[in-house]
């Protein structure tokens, strides 16, 4: 676990990224609240109106996929993903620099794979109906693909920041 990073002052592009990250979290939060509503409705429907709706399961999985994908993408922007930075603090500055450049590239590569294949999987099942709900079978790949693309953007931003000549001693 790491804390939110203290990034240098933002330019216009930085502010745009910041806004995108906020939007991603807002959508993830909405999906999370949606999960509560859908599951709550399921209990209500079963006990009060004695009818188990069949759409709740596929919709729940879509909301879960949304919360995960966009939350995870935003986590790239704020450097919130679990990891450990043991080596990082105990190596020469040149090596540290190399690591700072490599890590976002690995993240961007994985994000790209997720975005690309996610989009393909989405298109592949778009014409097939999901059981129980009026939506495509492959709809869960939509947020995943978007999340993957955002991971690429956020990771490349981190890469660009690592490239910049740095002012050390952030001091906190």
């Amino acid at each position: 676990m790491s804390e939110a990073s203290t990034l240098p002052p933002l330019g216009a592009a930085g502010r745009l990224l910041e806004r995108i990250a906020h939007l991603a979290i807002a959508i993830a939060a909405t999906a999370l609240f949606g999960l509560v509503i859908v599951q709550g409705w399921q209990v209500f429907a079963r006990y009060v109106i004695n009818d188990s709706p069949s759409w709740t399961e596929p919709v729940t999985l879509l909301l879960l996929s949304t919360a995960m994908s966009l939350g995870a993408a935003a986590g790239v922007h704020t450097n919130r993903h679990f990891g450990f930075y043991l080596l990082h603090d105990h190596v020469r500055p040149a090596v540290r620099r190399g690591i700072d450049l490599l890590v976002p590239l690995v993240i961007a590569a994985i994000g790209a794979v997720i975005a690309w294949w996610g989009a393909l999987l989405l298109l592949d099942g778009l014409h097939i109906k999901a059981a129980g709900a009026a939506m495509p079978q492959s709809i869960n790949y939509l947020p995943l693909s978007i999340g993957g693309a955002l991971m690429v953007v956020f990771a490349l931003n981190r890469f660009a920041l690592a490239l910049r000549p740095r002012v050390e001693e952030e001091g906190h």
């Binding site: 993830a28 999370l32 995960m68 994908s69 939350g71 995870a72 679990f82």
Partner: peptide, 18 residues
């Protein structure tokens, strides 16, 4: 409340992705 759900969404994304 908004802060709470935002915080929960952040943790959720990171945990579910792992």
């Amino acid at each position: 409340f908004v802060e709470t759900i935002t915080h929960a969404a952040r943790s959720t994304g990171v945990i579910l992705f792992v």
